[in-house]
């Protein structure tokens, strides 16, 4: 990777991080006359989740932009040959992908080896995609601001997510924290 194409965007629930990410992607696509791709990690497990997915789909439809959607709830590495140099790829959101991987095999999440493997596989997928496309924008959630203490599952999950965030931020050329719809640039420089 000559120059990092990776952009990391995080924020709380309903902070406007997805809208910001979609706008950023659209701006890049327009600039280079590129193609927009959306990696959807969500699996509709209940009506509320279905509604949430539909809302996001509608937003992308109504934007008038031509998004190609890739349903990839697990195994990001499967998309390693999918994208090309004029593609702008958006993954929304990383927490969903981690959830799906984390709970893919019953009680396996308790095993440190399994945890390492999940993290490595997600990072591998991210790097492979980032290498191929023009820009790879990853959206994630802020979740680790409460005591993770006594509950093993929450502790492990929070630790894994934070480590993924650290790894991605380290590789990203820009990182944003979105607060109440306002993107704060935490790493990199503002574009002219």
């Amino acid at each position: 990777m000559a120059e990092s194409s990776l952009i990391f965007i995080s924020g709380g629930v309903r902070s406007g991080k997805s809208s910001f990410a979609e706008k950023l992607a659209a701006d890049y696509a327009q600039e280079i006359d590129g193609q927009l791709h959306y990696i959807a990690a969500g699996q509709s497990s209940d009506p509320e989740m279905e509604e949430r997915i539909r809302r996001h789909q509608n937003d992308r439809l109504e934007s008038g932009l031509n998004w190609t959607t890739w349903e990839q709830p697990v195994e990001l590495t499967k998309l390693r040959h999918t994208f090309q140099s004029k593609d702008i790829v958006l993954l929304d959101c990383l927490t969903t992908l981690l959830n799906n991987e984390f709970f893919s095999q019953d009680e396996m999440w308790k095993s440190p080896d399994f945890q390492k493997q999940v993290m490595a596989s997600i990072m591998e997928g991210i790097e492979q995609i980032a290498q191929k496309c023009h820009h790879f924008i990853i959206v994630s959630n802020e979740v680790v601001y409460e005591p993770l203490g006594d509950r093993e599952l929450v502790y492990i999950y929070g630790k894994m997510l934070a480590q993924l965030h650290r790894n991605i931020v380290a590789k990203a050329y820009q990182a944003f924290l979105v607060e109440a719809g306002i993107p704060l640039l935490m790493k990199g420089i503002e574009r002219a």
């Binding site: 802020e142 680790v144 601001y145 993770l148 929070g158 630790k159 934070a162 965030h165 650290r166």
Partner: peptide
């Protein structure tokens, strides 16, 4: 005195 804070596992 220097105070360093942030979320869990953020690399403090």
């Amino acid at each position: 005195m220097h105070f360093v804070t942030g979320g869990s596992f953020n690399g403090k």
